[in-house]
């Protein structure tokens, strides 16, 4: 019973804060609400016996990527009134389009839910096949990561290096040789 309550609270927080993220005028608030959503998702990962993924999500996503977003929002300092103006004159804001778009979105959600629920074994509680000690062990996770997936690991490290160099080059001012 407390498990179910924790699940509902955490998923409620995650969904509510994500819905608020896309509805905020101020991008600063959006970033902070998304950090809250990541925290709730980390709680869900812990409930799914994935403590390493939960902590990695907080360290990398909420602690580094979102700080980067925050810096960019602060430094760009785009005026907020223009954003509101553009949202108001957006072509999708006309009532006919909005109703049609809303109907399509509802159809999408219902289709996704139907597709996911008609998969096999969906009613089984999560934790049916293996014990939680196996799946929650970081040592075994590391062993699998570095033996079966070592190629993907090394490729990811090169990808991050490329992204670092690319970000520095793209954000440089023109004529700046430093």
């Amino acid at each position: 019973m407390p498990e179910t309550l924790v699940f509902y609270v955490l998923s409620g927080v995650a969904i509510a804060t994500s819905a608020l993220v896309i509805g905020q005028r101020n991008p600063m608030y959006s970033v902070l609400l998304l950090v809250a959503s990541f925290g709730a998702l980390a709680g869900l990962y812990i409930q799914l016996d994935a403590p390493f993924v939960a902590v990695a999500q907080i360290i990398i996503y909420a602690g580094a990527v979102m700080v980067l977003f925050l810096f960019v929002v602060m430094l760009l300092n785009a005026p907020r009134e223009d954003a509101a103006e553009w949202d108001r004159t957006h072509p999708l804001r006309q009532p006919a389009f909005a109703r049609f778009g809303g109907l399509l979105a509802l159809v999408l959600v219902l289709q996704l839910a139907w597709a996911l629920l008609s998969a096999t074994g969906v009613d089984a509680p999560v934790a049916s096949r293996a014990g939680s000690e196996v799946v929650g062990s970081v040592r075994a996770l590391g062993r699998t990561l570095f033996t079966d997936y070592v190629f993907a690991f090394e490729a990811t490290s090169i990808l991050i290096l490329v992204a670092m160099v690319g970000a520095v080059v793209l954000a440089r001012r023109e004529g700046d040789q430093s």
Binding site: E3, F7, S11, S18, A19, V21, L108, L116, P125
Partner: peptide, 18 residues
């Protein structure tokens, strides 16, 4: 125990919001 379907519905709703 929480059924797998619950997690998948949460995932679907989040994806739709995004």
């Amino acid at each position: 125990m929480i059924p797998l379907g619950h997690y998948l519905i949460v995932s679907a709703i989040l994806f739709a919001i995004g």
